[in-house]
């Protein structure tokens, strides 16, 4: 992968996930927004309203694609039908990179439609990295893999999640979409220190950051994307930016979605963290 390709877009700024309840507002009001992230699968269709909306958005905004169905950690081979459609959409959107999750989601042709955690072993890391290389070669667009939030760990694990992630991306020579909310959620669910996670990553490979809200239940935190970003996650975001630089950052809000203005205001809380230390000292940070 060309890390240079990611560096060319390092100043993309703060983006927002494009979601249906905001279509009308965006198309009519054309609000200022650095970029939108689309869920690729929602637009990997042959026609109709989704593509009409996408074309209108593309006339005005930079769009970056984020996927949920590549399942790079499946034991099964890559799905060529999915990859062909993804590549066609990438040509349409001119996305500077494609991202998907470091997870598995289907086996023997049966799909869970979930982002299931990987067993963290060296043999699985090698297998996954090999699939990422194949996907990247086919897609001809830089690929970023995102750390998922998880609620379970496999008995077979031989290494930490962050060691596994680092092993995979180095072997695959791909980028990282670092989801700091997912790090926080998993650290709470599994009892590790999120700073250990952050510090151990190859920071030069982080091409994008996700922030989002979560839901705390009695014994587990779920990655629900249905509320504002929590203070501990903003704090972790600040540390991530210090380590990785002011990489493009996106707020995900997928459920109980408030107005566009409210989502945008939440996303823009990331902006001060992206400033240099000298500039930041004159601004009050949100958390």
């Amino acid at each position: 992968m060309s890390l240079k390709a990611l560096q060319e877009h390092a100043s993309l700024g703060i983006g927002i996930g494009l979601r249906v309840p905001h279509y009308r507002h965006i198309l009519e009001k054309k609000p200022i927004c650095d970029w939108f992230e689309i869920i690729s699968e929602n637009f990997m269709v042959d026609g109709g309203r989704p593509l009409e909306v996408l074309e209108s958005i593309l006339e005005q905004y930079q769009v970056v694609q984020h996927g949920v169905s590549m399942y790079l950690g499946n034991a099964d081979p890559l799905d060529l039908d999915h990859l062909r459609k993804l590549k066609a959409l990438a040509k349409r959107t001119r996305t500077p990179w494609l991202s998907d999750h470091l997870c598995w989601g289907s086996v023997n042709g049966r799909f869970s439609h979930d982002l299931l955690p990987m067993p963290y072993t060296m043999s699985v890391a090698k297998h996954t990295a090999s699939k990422i290389r194949q996907a990247q070669d086919f897609l001809e667009v830089p690929l970023l893999v995102e750390n998922v939030s998880s609620y379970a760990e496999f008995s077979q694990n031989e290494m930490t999640e962050w060691d596994f992630l680092a092993e995979v991306v180095e072997r695959a020579d791909c980028g990282i979409l670092l989801d700091v909310n997912n790090i926080y959620v998993s650290s709470q669910n599994h009892g590790f220190d999120s700073l250990d996670y952050l510090k151990s990553l190859p920071h030069h490979r982080v091409g994008q950051i996700h922030v989002a809200g979560h839901t705390r239940l009695d014994h587990v935190i779920l990655d629900t994307h249905d509320q504002p970003v929590s203070d501990p996650v903003w704090s972790l975001y600040e540390k991530a930016v210090n380590l990785c630089g002011p990489v493009p950052t996106l707020l995900e809000w997928d459920d109980r979605i408030p107005s566009f203005d409210e989502v945008q205001a939440e996303a823009l809380k990331a902006r001060p963290y992206q400033l240099s230390e000298a500039d930041r000292s004159s601004i009050k940070l949100p958390s």
Partner: peptide, 13 residues
């Protein structure tokens, strides 16, 4: 009929 299926969160409470 004006909806999409996938969000980035797969969590269902």
């Amino acid at each position: 009929m004006f909806d999409t299926r996938a969000g980035a969160s797969q969590a269902k409470l």
